[in-house]
Amino acid sequence: MIELKDLSRRFQVGEQLVKALDAVDLAIGDGEYVSIMGPSGSGKSTLLNIIGLLDRPTSGEYLLDGRGTTSLDDDELAHVRARKIGFIFQSFHLVPRLTAFENVELPMVLAGTAPAERRRRADAMLASLNLTDRAEHRPDQLSGGQRQRVAIARAMVMEPTVLLADEPTGNLDHVSGADVLAALEGLNSRGITLLVVTHDDEVAARARRHVRMRDGRIVADGSSPGQPP
């Protein structure tokens, strides 16, 4: 359960105060599938970063599963992030030196999970995304679609409740993009809350709920395909 109450995020850019998020109220229930659309600079990435606990709001309240997050320190935020939130990025962000398997293993390495347990979980995760035969390949030996699926496996291996995808198909061709979306939707159907930030109407249309942003505000929020107001 994600609850944002009167949440603002302001940046100081030179002499100008930029309102990336301006008094946003938003509630997303467990297991929802939400698309977030809007022009560049509308604040959708900032929204995603704040939900993902990578950024802090300037004012307002953010409750994750009923608990306030604004008073947590950096280490506590890292801990919550590791266990509740998975990230998918447009540019995959795989560590180039590490194999697919090692990339998937990385969150568990950081969490200090025992090696045997890591192997079991990473293998299962790769298998569920049809990547078993790619486990020992490095990112530069994988196709774009495969890379993004490795990234999904990595995001899911700690069994988070929320999956945040920032333009997950932005660097992919149509077929691989569809693959990746299918994988994400498969996870959503098993109860993961899925938030997808995208420019692509086609991608956004697949979500069940559509949030549209402009100038740091939510201008539309509905369960039908979003229309410009």
């Binding site: 990578l54 950096d74 280490d75 890292a78 992030r81 990025f89 962000h93 990385l106 700690m158």
Partner: peptide, 16 residues
Amino acid sequence: TAEVGLMKALGARGRQ
């Protein structure tokens, strides 16, 4: 830099 950002997104603490 990007890798450090990623590590943090994956839940790495500053000390790590």
